[in-house]
Write a protein that binds this DNA or RNA. Structure first.
Length: 446
RNA sequence: GGCCCUAUCGUCUAGUGGUUAGGACAACAGGUUUUCAAUCUGUCAACCAGAGUUCGAUUCUCUGUAGGGUCACCA
């Protein structure tokens, strides 16, 4: 009979001393997906033993961020370390009774220091543990000394609480950032002292800033909420984060959550840190935007729309949005486009300058001639759709030189150096407005 | 500085004891329904260095170098 497989339990233990960091978000994803793949469970706890720095608003941000990414877990099992004082106390007392920890008199060096703390009695041995990503890692724990595990029986510190909680909640796999590698020997020492089993360790390479240092505030946005506020899609964020430090070994770049659930492999994690590249994130996000239906696009972007667009009537709004959709990487980009005046032709007759209406070396007469002809053709069109307009104008434009005909027309309609093509513009503006704008351009050319 | 970790195009990465070292993003050039966007095609671009093992190393070993992490009565 084969052994009974233990249920895989992973955990996400953020400290509510800041908003959800993108690094924590990626760690959460790996923990969540690995647990789910194995029909296990990811536990969530808040490491708030530092009372001075822990804040409820950060708790809320972390929870909201995980929810945004689509990481769900059993909230009824969530707890705060600050609520478990009695449990840690019990373990501390046992450790002290077993003479594996002791009260130690200290000299007070900085404000807030106590004159007595609880130290772990270090046996000063060498510890070797196996890391999924890097293989065996050896540490001589002598250098750690008798480290402090609690300020008092009522005030346990990080290493103690981590070990106790992982033990009590049956954590089988610890998946966390690289920066915890050097914490691991200390935690193993405590585990051994308590007779707790050792979980399987997987240390993830760090997400780096462009200068290859640890990603922090000074490098710009590090909180997930900032990306949400900038109008990135959660699916895109998940997709991008998952590919930092892991890849399936195929050419696939875009994954849904269910594909990740199928493809992800904890054994194929990268060793080296990866730079958080906003340019690639933008590309991924745009891929997701391109796949969105117009209805979804509208629903998602509406909160980012400037008032003067939001108030347009439904029909025009749909058309404007279709122009916007192919020009942005993320929703907040719409603000820049509008502020730069790129969409001004939707809001009224553009200001036209004579020189701008003329294609290259054509001269005003030629531009005017072409526009006269364009009007003649357009006036006959019944169904004023962009396809139809194009069909009717195409032969003429091709014969005369597309630039010569199409540039003045496009400029007459948009008044912009950059804009969609003239057929699209005419279709959006409608027959009446289109003819008016072209006539005005002709006046200017005279 | 001690300890620990890491090292393939600018970036994310694939890959192998013998490959034209592959893909994606970016950049650049060109095509497409002028311009912008989108799209298509193409170009540029990498195995940190030195020894050793080997018939042969980007790949294995060692050393060096560089970068990063960590050294709290924070987590």
């Amino acid at each position: 009979m084969s052994q009974i497989l233990k249920k895989i339990i992973t955990r996400l233990p953020p400290s509510p001393t800041g908003n959800l960091h993108v690094g924590t978000a990626r760690t959460a994803l790996f923990n969540y997906i690995f647990a789910k793949q194995n029909k296990g469970e990811m536990l969530f706890r808040l490491e708030d033993t530092d009372k001075a720095r822990s804040k409820v608003e950060f708790e809320e941000d972390i929870l909201a961020g995980l929810g945004w990414l689509g990481i769900d877990f059993d909230q009824s099992k969530m707890f705060r370390q600050s609520e478990r004082g009695d449990i840690y106390k019990k373990y501390l007392e046992k450790l002290i009774a077993d003479e594996l920890a002791y009260f130690s008199k200290e000299k007070v060096e900085k404000e807030g220091d106590r004159d007595e703390v609880i130290r772990f009695k270090n046996s000063n041995k060498k510890i070797t543990f196996r890391d999924t990503v890097r293989g065996d890692i050896e540490f001589d724990t002598t250098e750690l000394g008798d480290f402090v595990i609690a300020k008092s029986l009522e005030e346990p510190l990080y290493h103690l609480t981590v070990v106790v909680d992982d033990f009590e909640t049956g954590v089988t796999n610890v998946i966390r950032g690289d920066d915890h590698i050097s914490n691991t020997p200390r935690q193993i020492l405590i585990q051994e002292a308590m007779g707790a089993p050792q979980p399987i360790y997987t240390h993830l390479p760090l997400i780096l800033a462009p200068d290859r240092s640890k990603l922090s505030k000074r490098h710009g946005a590090v909180s997930l909420i900032e990306y949400k506020n900038q109008g990135y899609l959660p699916e895109a964020m998940v997709n991008y984060l998952m590919l930092l430090g892991w890849n399936p070994g195929t050419d696939q770049e875009i994954f849904s959550m269910s594909e990740f659930l199928k493809e992800f492999d904890l054994n194929k994690i990268q060793k080296g840190g990866a730079i958080f590249d906003i340019v690639k994130l933008n590309w991924v996000n745009k891929e997701y935007i391109k796949k969105m239906s117009d209805v979804d696009f509208k629903k998602n972007i509406v909160d980012f729309l400037p008032e003067k667009i939001k108030n347009k009537d439904e029909n025009l709004l749909i058309k404007i949005l279709s122009v916007i959709k192919e020009r942005i990487d993320k929703f907040s980009d719409v603000t820049n486009i509008v502020e730069a005046g790129e969409l001004d032709y939707f809001f009224g007759m553009p200001d036209l300058k004579k020189e701008d209406l003329i294609w290259k070396e054509d001269g005003a007469d030629i531009a005017k001639q072409h526009l006269d002809k364009v009007i003649e053709i357009l006036e006959k069109i019944e169904n004023f759709s962009s396809e139809n307009i194009k069909e009717n104008l195409w032969d003429y434009a091709t014969k005369q030189g597309r630039g010569s005909v199409l540039w003045p027309m496009r400029f007459a309609l948009s008044g912009q150096q950059k804009s969609p093509d003239p057929f699209t513009l005419a279709g959006i503006l409608g027959k009446k407005e289109t003819l008016e704008r072209i006539k005005k351009a002709i006046d200017i050319l005279c």
